[in-house]
Write a protein that binds this DNA or RNA. Structure first.
Lengths: 250, 250
DNA sequence: GAGTGGTCTAGACCACGAC
DNA sequence: TCGTGGTCTAGACCACTCT
């Protein structure tokens, strides 16, 4: 499975290129090279670390596989800008929407601050030594061509997302992940989505213009930044009849 | 995502290692090395093709990424045995079942021969020059601890699966893919599953001991052999409330 | 033309597995 | 001990991108 190597979490202290990959990853996480920027060239890196070109290339290959780096022939090796677009829609097929059509619009229904639940403290790795850790909780509705399609609950840890707590929700962008990057310096690198089946309660149904009890698909997402920290919890609900997902099995 | 390179379908005539990978893949498809067997060693291959070791290694890496080969340090490089186990269950979480418990049992409810639909002819690439191409269609129920859980419709093309057409369904194994290999020489290498939401009709509901109209998840699978041919179409239905699937997003 | 990553070579030595 | 794949070296030349 090309499933993932999270280098920092694995026993890659074995080989030289594994150690190099960890070292380079650390330099990226520390912000020495920012998302979208090129890192040093292979030859420079090889020289500065005192190893052969092929060894550096193996290290870079690991980071490319992890999605941290992207290589462009003739240009350089770049730090990935992270997830963008509207990846949540990959789970649904709504009539009147395809890849080429206008992107969905989004509307923040509510926003508030509250104390973290135990589960959130655990997921976010918040330290509760001093004061009880806080989170921002949002309700968000995403529409395609004026029709409400997805209802989301989003939880963001403080103080990391402090800049957003003070912003009027009218000013929030339609796309959250690029906004996280710009406002908070948080680059979402990957996510884990857990899908299950449920039914809409009365409030949820009203938001989506469906009947109470209508079948829905529930997507529970954990999103992670460059350093591998979980920095967003999100639950998304959409009409089960619009659900369509394709998976490659091997 | 490490999404897939199907070498034979891509423009890999460019590099030497791409061509080598195609050549090796062809030798495997032709049966020179069978699933589970080791291929020649790297050094032998490099020698016989007159290239450097590193070049052969790049070619092998492509085939490993495609799931055709598996490398074992100190032992050799082996032709993959293909998919096995019970991959369909990865979409469901049934109470009383986990990875370590007993595998599900299966029961063939019916089996018949019929002419291919236009869609099946297209999927299987059957040639209808001479006689109308035939398929085997099965209904199959999979149970966990005496409780029926999954209802499947399976379509297999003739003449490829001819040996199965003449077997009593009592003799069919619980695991189909290993049986395809043994009886028909067909090695299932990968599959594409398309998931959607539906509701059980009366007949289906009765089989699964659920109410008519009960929500279900529908899995439509196309399974492919070593040569990349589609050789099985399968639709699986299971209780939507037991549906649970986790996907990595990048 | 200069700089980047991509391909390829011809070696060396290491780590694992089987005998 | 031997054969396997895994790591690493120190080069060469090619292909792409920008100026």
């Amino acid at each position: 499975m090309s499933t993932l190597n999270y280098l920092s979490h694995r026993t890659l202290g074995q080989s030289q290129y594994g150690k190099l990959a960890m070292a380079l990853r650390e330099r990226i996480v520390q912000g020495e090279w920012k998302p979208g920027e090129p890192i040093s060239s292979e030859s420079l890196l090889a020289q500065s670390y005192g190893v052969a070109l092929g060894t550096i290339r193996q290290a870079l290959a690991l980071l490319v596989e992890d999605g941290v780096l992207q290589r462009r022939h003739g240009k350089g090796t770049f730090v990935s800008k992270g997830m963008s677009g509207t990846p949540m829609l990959r789970f649904f097929r709504f009539s009147g929407f395809d890849e080429s059509s206008e992107p969905p619009s989004s509307h923040i229904l509510s926003s508030r601050l509250r104390s973290s639940s135990a589960q959130e403290i655990s997921a976010f790795g918040q330290n509760s030594h001093n004061s009880p850790p806080q989170v921002i909780q949002l309700e968000r509705l995403r529409s395609i061509g004026q029709v409400p399609r997805l209802l989301e609950t989003i939880v963001l840890p403080l103080p990391l997302f402090g800049p957003l707590a003070e912003m009027s929700t009218d000013l929030w962008d339609d796309q959250l992940y690029p906004m996280y990057q710009v406002r908070c310096g948080v680059s979402i690198q990957h996510a884990q989505d857990s899908l299950s089946f449920s039914q809409l309660n009365g409030t949820q149904a009203k938001r989506l213009h469906l009947a109470s009890g209508h079948p829905c698909v529930l997507v529970e997402r954990q999103a992670f930044d460059l350093a591998g920290r979980c920095v967003e919890l999100r639950t998304t609900r959409g009409d089960a009849h619009s659900f369509r997902y394709t998976a490659q099995v091997r």
